[in-house]
């Protein structure tokens, strides 16, 4: 009896884990701005995080932040603070919270929320100027947030 019950449920667990073990934007719990639990099961990939940070259509983080480690991408902005060494004094949970929704950490900040899908005024469909689709995706996926967090953690002295 036990065996016949267990096998199907274990299979079911595996099947869902492979595709959809991600926390949706609406289900995130912030703890003083931080997010303790990773948004996906797969560990973040710092190399992919690096690309997301310089890509205009993705994070475009260097539009506002100066990051010495990303100097191969031209033109870093001055709207936010430099992020060198941010992995030194910020925990992964804090970084995850800031990238997902910085307004939970810095009230009223100009830094956009990268993992948020509702509560906007006249949301658009990316940079087309047209209205957003009903199921507006977050700017970055759960995995992309983890990738960026993984890269930020590499920004340490020495």
């Amino acid at each position: 009896m036990r065996i016949t019950v267990l096998i199907p449920s274990a299979l079911a667990l595996c099947a869902t884990a492979a595709v959809a073990e991600t926390v949706l934007p609406a289900n995130i719990e912030f703890n003083e701005g931080a997010i303790e639990t990773p948004l996906t099961d797969a560990p973040g990939d710092p190399a992919r995080g690096r690309e997301i940070m310089i890509s205009r259509g993705k994070g475009n983080c260097v539009a506002c932040h100066d990051v010495a480690a990303l100097k191969d991408a031209p033109f870093h902005g001055e709207v936010g603070p430099p992020l060198d060494f941010v992995g030194e004094y910020r925990s992964a949970a804090e970084l995850r919270g800031i990238v997902a929704n910085a307004k939970q950490t810095f009230e009223g900040t100009v830094m956009p929320a990268f993992y948020k899908t509702t509560g906007f005024v006249r949301p658009g469909d990316a940079y087309t100027g047209k209205a957003a689709p009903a199921d507006l995706p977050p700017i970055l996926t759960a995995q992309e947030i983890e990738d960026v967090v993984a890269f930020l953690q590499t920004l340490k002295e020495g």
Partner: peptide, 12 residues
């Protein structure tokens, strides 16, 4: 104006 609003990922 339209360009600046578009750049906020908004419906202009």
């Amino acid at each position: 104006f339209k360009g600046c609003v578009r750049d906020t990922r908004a419906e202009t």
